[in-house]
Every structure is written in C-alpha cells, then in structure tokens.
Design a protein around this nucleic acid. Structure first.
Lengths: 341, 341
DNA sequence: CTGAAAGCGCTAACAT
DNA sequence: ATGTTAGCGCTTTCAG
C-alpha cells in the first residue's frame, strides 16, 4: 500500500499524458492543475490530481510561459561578482526572487558596451519579465537600449534619470562616519571615494561634508580613484604624501578601507594611533589589522527590495524610487581612536 | 539617406510581421534568418533581411526554444556567492557560457534541502539545458534528484560518484605548499582544512602530507573546521594552543588564510618571524598584514571548462572527468620565512 | 461540468 | 525557390 512517489522522473509527463490516462481532455487537466479545479466534478478532479502526482507532473515552463506571455525569470546586470558588495546585493535579490517565484538570470558585464549587449540579449529575446540594473548606465548606447525597453527595470544602489531605483541612505552613512571621527577628537579629515560617475560616492561625501561643516571643521580633502582594494591602497598613499596629513579618513567602502589599511602598514603608519579609519562594513572588514570600525549598510535588503519593486511593476503598479529605511549602524572595532598629539 | 536604425524597439516584431511586410510565408523568413537563406532567391533574401533589420527583429526565445526543445540556458548551483572562490568560478563559467551562446541561471543554495528544491525547480520545469553543480551533494534526497535527472550535469571543484567533474590539481597544490615551507627550513608543519565532506581539502592535505613524508618530516598536525575566515581564525587559535606549536602552516584556502593571519595578530604571533603561512591565492590575499604567500589556482578556468564540458554533453558527447592541467603557481609575498631559532 | 478549437512564435518536413 | 502543414506543451475562450 506504499505509494510509490517519484516513480517517474519529474518533468517528463505532459498534460496530454495525464489526460489520456484519466480519460479526459487536456483542457480539463489544465484547469484542475491551475485553478484547483473549481467547477470540476470532485471525482474527476481527484483522478487528475492523483495521476499528476503519480507521474510526478511538472509544467513545462517554456510552453506555459509562451502561452501566458511571461517568463518567470528576472535578470540582473552587475559589474563584478567577486566584489562582495555586489555579491551581498545579489544574494538578497535572489532570495526574494525565489520567494516571489522567479528564477534569476545573472549577467556580469565588464563595461557599458558589454552591458548593452547583455541587456539586449536578455530583454529583446524576451527571456525575462524584469531587470535589476546594478551597473552604471551612462553611455548613449546603454541609455537608449534601456529607454526603449518594454520590460520593467529598477536600478539598485544607483540613482538614474531613466528609471526608478532602490538605494540606501548614503548621506546618513556619510554623516555617521563624520560624527564618529569628530567625536573621537579629529579635526583634519579626508574622504577616499570614486570618480563622479558613482552617485553613491557623491552622496556619502555630501553627508560627510555636511557634518564636518556643521562642526566647524576646515574643508576636507577628497581623493578619488577606483573603488577597489588597490584603489584604496593607492589613495591612502597619496593622502599620506600631502604636506599636511589628515588624522581621520572615511573610506568609501570596505574594499577601499582594506586597501587603505594595507597602505598604512606599508608606510609604517599605525592604526589607530597615527590614523583613524572608518569605512562601510562587510565580512572582510573584521579580519584586517586592526579590524575596521565600519558602518553596516543593508545591502541584501536593498537587493530584496529591488525584487519586490520589480515584481510590483510587473504586475502593473506605478514604480517609485525607494530608499531603504534601515538606518546605517556603526560597528565599533579598532580602527578609530583619538588623534595623535 | 541615413538609415534609421533602432526605429522599433527590439524584440517586438515577429516572423509573421516580416512575412506580411515582404509578402512571403513565415517559413521562408525563418529559413532566411536561420540558415542564412541557402536556396532562397537573392532578391527575396535581401528583402527579408532588410525588413528584419528595419524592424529590429529578435527571435522570441521562448517560442523558438519550445520548438527546438532546448532552452539556451545553463544553471549553476552554488553555496555562497559572497565567497570569492565561488565568485571566481562563476565568473569563468559565465564568460564561457556567453561565448557558447547560453544565458546563466544561478541559484545560491544554503543547504542540501534547498539545493534539492532549486534543482528540481530548474530541471523539472525544463528551464535549463545543463547544470553546473558547485555544491556538495550527499543527501539521499539530492543524490536521487540528480541521478534521475534527464539533464546533463557536471560537478565543479568537487568529485562525485554521481557525475563527471571538473577540478584542479589539488594534490599538486598541497605538494607545492609543503615544498615551499620545507625549503624555507620548516620541520614542524600543520594543515588547516575542512571536515571530510570537502574532497578538495582531502586532496590538498594528501599532497601536503606526501611531500612532508618524502622529506622525512614527522607527521603533520591537521585541524579541521569551517573553511571560512572565521574558521581559519578559530583553527589557528587551536593550533597555537597545542603543547608543541607548528612553525609552518598550510591553510586550505584564502579565506582560511586570512582568518589565520588575524588570529596570529591577536595572539601576538608575528608572521613570518614566528610563524609561516602559505595558502591558496586570491585578490584578498594581497592586502593582509603581511601579504600572503599563496598558490594560484585556475578557478575561473575551471568554471569555463565546466561549461565547455557541459556544452559537449548537451551535444551528445560522452562525458569525462577533467582536471585542469594548469599547474598551481606559487606567488611569493611575505608570509613565509625561515623558522624561528 | 467537460470538450473542442484556437493560438502563443517558431521550425522542419514535405509538397509544389 | 517558396508555401503548406503540423506541432512543441500549454492556456483560454466558447460551445455543448
């Protein structure tokens, strides 16, 4: 009497097979397996459901989607998978996507040209119902492609004129960084960030500057470059070569922070005795020498929220910009101390 | 006389539209756009191609794939996207996938239960033509699912009884690590690795032990745990609490190595003066204090090769196990020195 | 309550 | 050289 589950490998049987076995029409089977069989005689309903279980029926996604004109897939465009910041965002997005019944198509794109190509591939072949864009879209090529696009899209961790976005409160992070350094007694501060194309960098800097100004500090020094470990490394080197050195530095993100720590070590600059550093948080920031005092930002929540918004757009809701309302949180570790005497 | 490219958003026109505009049958259009129009009058061919360009025709992937019974998509199952080791593998796989004309569906799965679910989702709904498995598949549930699977699959960076695999030469890495430490003069060595379920750890250890033995060294101490930064941190702590401390340590991977460096710092153990560490390489290993001497392994090549194999299997070729034949390479940095006196 | 029919967009014999 | 036909597996009116 043991029911033999999984007697057939899943996904091999079709509606037609079930229909034939039960002796009904495929349309009836379809009805039962979709709306649960409202307006179908209980007896036939049960026969159909039983047979479906017996053969381990799974709908053929392609066929179904062709018919109902949706794919059940979401796409995400991102610049660098090995960058833990994006990885965390993608993770949040993927979890939520699964929750909402989508599978996730990811494309890592080196530059705007490849972005446009990957974009067109996914969108124009109609492989996805919606797209999450985690890359900077500035080239005319890319902007045109996106603007003419029939599929909903949302930018994540980037603001854009050509679409709605999900971001975190970067200004607040900047303010918190400044507050932390100022309260530790620092007055000569600096910011390591990116070239202007990264709007997150602009906002973090703005918040940082705002609080510095409010505290009556002199203008801060800003140095820009690639927002990578190497970039942070080089940037701090430059900063340490200035005639008058800062005693406190806000590093755009965790990677930049890690690079800065490494540069300090090479220059024989002790942290936090000679230099204090605050940056954004991530797993890696715990294992530097010393561990970095950092600001936690809800990256995976941002990714998840992007999917929620996208899903809403797909179902026809008016899109809107959203800023995740989880405030940035300071994680005190060992990279901030009082300024040197 | 300027041709108005992109006059229509891509992906909106169908074969039928083109057929109607040109005044031919859809099958003719299909023929032209596929086999390039062999056995079609040049005049009609040109008319069709022109019209297709004009309306910016792109085939509807779903419809096409339903018909030809393939999806043009590959899946990848991996345990942790924020782990740079997997990220690098995925990157290689994605590049190659694009090259070969596939899109990539990625699923991050926390444990074997979710693995099985994600697996069934992708495979039984027929969303993919092949699957790359970068997770450990040991549960009966998962093994059954995979074994009964109609889609080709290949394990990457893991050997398995239930499928072919693409791996790197882990034993060689182990041997190189031992050689490096031994040549620096060390005689008391240890290995930080994982619980037995990770076969890569077993192989690296085997290679390491082999070379130690050949050099006539006493048996090495092995300590196992999670192969993460935290795991490496804890493991080195334990190692340093042993009555007789090792002077040279081989850390399973970069994350473990980073954790170990952090633990050494906390314990006041200097690297490389008091303790030498060699680990596997990755971007992060450059920015530790001190930078880690490490063994480069061709992760992205492994990912790429997995796609090549999978593609071959999809096209009916007999699958086979492959070991990437790029030998491991030592990157000398600053974490290895002579043993303390 | 159930079945027949049409069609999503495309390809692939087979006719002509 | 081109068109006709059939159908991939599914959903969805519309009749009965």
């Amino acid at each position: 009497m043991t029911q033999k589950l999984r007697s057939t490998p899943p996904g091999r049987a079709t509606l037609k097979d079930i229909a034939r076995a039960v002796g009904v029409d495929v349309s009836t089977v379809s009805k039962v397996l979709n709306d649960g069989g409202i307006s179908v005689r209980e007896q036939t309903r049960k026969a159909i459901v039983d047979e479906a279980n017996r053969v381990n029926y799974r709908p053929h996604a392609l066929a179904r989607n062709l018919r109902i004109q949706r794919t059940g897939a979401l796409g995400i465009l991102l610049p660098d998978l090995t960058n833990p910041i994006y990885a965390a965002t993608v993770r949040g997005a993927m979890r939520q996507a699964e929750e909402a019944g989508y599978v996730m198509l990811v494309a890592e794109v080196a530059d705007e040209r490849t972005s446009a190509a990957a974009y067109l591939r996914l969108v124009s072949e109609r492989r996805i119902d919606g797209l999450i864009i985690a890359v900077t879209a500035q080239s005319k090529e890319m902007i045109d492609a996106i603007k003419s696009s029939p599929v909903p899209h949302v930018f994540v961790n980037r603001r854009s004129k050509i679409g709605r976005s999900v971001t975190v409160d970067d200004q607040a992070s900047g303010r918190l960084a400044a507050k932390t350094l100022i309260e530790a007694g620092h007055t000569r501060l600096a910011f390591i960030g990116s070239e202007p194309e990264l709007d997150t960098s602009q906002r973090r800097r703005a918040g940082f500057v705002e609080t510095c100004k409010a505290a009556g500090l002199p203008p801060i020094k800003t140095v820009v470059g690639p927002v990578s470990r190497r970039g942070g490394f080089d940037a701090l080197h430059r900063l340490l070569s200035e005639p008058v050195r800062p005693t406190g530095v806000f590093a755009f993100n965790m990677l930049v922070g890690i690079g800065a720590v490494a540069a300090a070590r090479v220059r024989g600059v002790r942290i936090p005795e000679d230099l204090s550093i605050v940056t954004l948080d991530g797993e890696d920031a715990i294992f530097t020498a010393p561990p970095l005092t950092a600001i936690a930002t809800p990256l995976s929540e941002m990714g998840a929220r992007a999917v929620v918004e996208l899903d809403a757009m797909i179902h026809g809701r008016e899109p809107q910009d959203v800023v995740i309302d989880i405030p940035p949180q300071l994680i005190v570790r060992e990279s901030v101390g009082p300024p040197p005497a």
